[in-house]
């Protein structure tokens, strides 16, 4: 009964069309965040919409939460490594246009980090906390 109530073909078809637009918009916000309003945090928050849409389409399938969690932790390590590399190794003098590249890289990493972190929060909340409705 639950499945019938929540499964909507209209929603599914429309969302399939919208997924790439969400990804494009999220990436746009992340990449143009250097010179415009936006940035990693906001773009990552837009990217979470993908997983939320998935939840709306199929509220019973959790997906691979452990994988997302691992990505989340791995990206955190990358961010810390990149930041400490900037301070310790002194790439700034060697590589031309270092600031632009660095900003873009850290923006993308923060975007993925925020997206996966918020996804973990949302999925934990939606599937694990408080039990399921029946």
């Amino acid at each position: 009964m639950y499945e019938e109530r929540h499964h909507s073909e209209i929603l599914e078809d429309v969302l399939q069309f919208i997924y790439p637009l969400i990804i494009l918009f999220g990436l746009y916000i992340i990449l143009t965040g250097i010179s415009q309003p936006g940035g990693g945090f906001q773009g990552g928050a837009v990217l979470v919409a993908i997983f939320m849409c998935r939840y709306l389409v199929s509220p019973r399938e959790m997906g691979r939460l452990d994988l997302i969690q691992k990505i989340d932790k791995l990206i955190l390590v990358f961010i810390l490594a990149l930041a400490s590399m900037l301070i310790l190794l002194g790439f700034r003098e060697v590589i031309p246009y270092f600031n632009g590249i660095y900003n873009m890289l850290i923006g993308i990493l923060i975007g993925i980090k925020v997206a996966s972190g918020l996804t973990v929060i949302f999925y934990t909340f939606a599937f694990i906390e408080g039990g399921k409705e029946d």
Binding site: P37, F41, V48, M52
Partner: peptide, 11 residues
């Protein structure tokens, strides 16, 4: 504003 719109009114 962008952060508020995305997080506050959506997520």
């Amino acid at each position: 504003a962008l952060a508020e719109a995305v997080i506050g009114s959506t997520i």
